[in-house]
Design a protein around this nucleic acid. Structure first.
Ligand code: SF4
Ligand code: SF4
Lengths: 137, 137
DNA sequence: TTAAATAGGACTATTTTAAACCTATTACCC
DNA sequence: GGGTAATAGGTTTAAAATAGTCCTATTTAA
């Protein structure tokens, strides 16, 4: 169905939240989950992924929480997708060749790989900064 | 994971097969499944979808089978994707608004829709004709 | 020392995809 | 007309991916 995952959407919402309402402070997962209306536990997983990728930074302990790990100009939608879903694989042979039983006789692999890179480039051309400007309008 | 479905890949292989080895005749699902090495029953479903969309045409009965329903220049990768997977919905609110519980407070819906149309445009810019030329090289 | 937070492993439930199964219909050919 | 090889398509089952929960450990401010 070629649909983005829920976790990615949660992550994208969280990043824009941090970039607008989280300036100069750390924001708890609880606050974000309450404010945006989704599962605290699940959002927590998304935040952990974003943190590992350096998109978010965390402070542990009481009064802890998350803030952005980079400037909004330096975070692209692709960065968030990769942080949360891992490297993209439009076709299963991208994950591992033996995941496709017709690998050796496949003729459209080249095209599929080009397509994947084009989609990736689309995700890469929008930063959180530009996304926020579009939202404001 | 943003991966295309198996059924779509089967369909794309079948269309290129018909466009190269199916000239001036009808090809059975059995032949294509044997030749390309995948499930006859499953490919059959893909062919039925392609037929409904007019991409393939069928002849029933003994000596029946499939041939292309349009010229390779007139079939785009997007046509095949839509025939097999239905209208694309990068986000779940595209299917139906109430499939997303945060619909009313979502700020990135607009961007996601633009993104979807850009991806769709990418799929639309490659016809089977141009795809085959790329494969030949 | 308590409490509120992140970190992360393990598990469960739900949904989607892939595939198989089965029956009907069509039409060639003897 | 009857047998057979094909498409047409509905229903069911199996496998995989996604979504979400649960639980425990660790960190740190107060
Ligand atoms: S069909 Fe081709 S492109 Fe698709 S997974 Fe198999 S080898 Fe890769
Ligand atoms: S989060 Fe926004 S874009 Fe995604 S499904 Fe919900 S309303 Fe649509």
């Amino acid at each position: 169905m070629l649909q983005v995952s829920r976790k990615f959407e949660y992550g994208l919402h969280a990043v824009t939240y941090l970039a607008t309402k989280g300036l100069g402070r750390v924001v708890t997962v609880k606050e974000m989950a309450d404010e945006m209306g989704f599962s605290q536990e699940f959002l927590s997983k998304a935040m952990q992924s974003l943190k590992r990728a350096g998109i978010a930074a965390s402070v542990q302990g009481v009064k802890g929480g998350y803030r952005l790990g980079k400037a909004p100009e330096e975070i692209t939608v692709a960065d968030i997708a990769i942080a949360i879903e891992g490297e993209p694989h439009l076709v299963r042979c991208g994950v591992k060749a033996d995941r496709c039983e017709i690998f050796s006789s496949c003729h459209h692999r080249g095209y599929m790989n080009i397509l994947q890179h084009k989609i990736q480039a689309l995700l890469d051309e929008t930063t959180i900064h530009t996304l926020l400007k579009e939202i404001e309008r």
